[in-house]
Amino acid sequence: MTLENVLLVSGIIFAIGLYGVLSRRSTIALLMSLELLFNAVVIAAVAFSRFTPSAGLADAGAVTANEVRAALTGHVFAVLVISVAAAESALALALIFALYRAKETVEITDVSEMKR
């Protein structure tokens, strides 16, 4: 388990998610693929936190407590991204329901409002 391997796994999950985003017709399935994208990004953030030192640690000079804590910035970002993703999925589902109510469909190919 090296940084490269973890990032590769993250990349694979991202690619799978991207495939889903591009090819799925059902908006709910599309939303699921989006969540996969989020997860891939979070894995990458945590992997960096685990395997790479913060800038203050890598340079010369005394090591301070803040520099040590900064090594976990990736974890913090992971938590923030997960929170935003949760909010996003709630909103996306609301949109899907609104779409379903308005058009009686959840197929994204049936929606081309952006054309206008």
Binding site: V21, L22, V111, M114, K115, R116
Partner: peptide, 14 residues
């Protein structure tokens, strides 16, 4: 190109 299909846009982005 502007076909209103979100997925096409996403593909272009990718």
């Amino acid at each position: 190109v502007q076909n209103g299909q979100a997925q096409a846009y996403a593909a272009v982005m990718a």
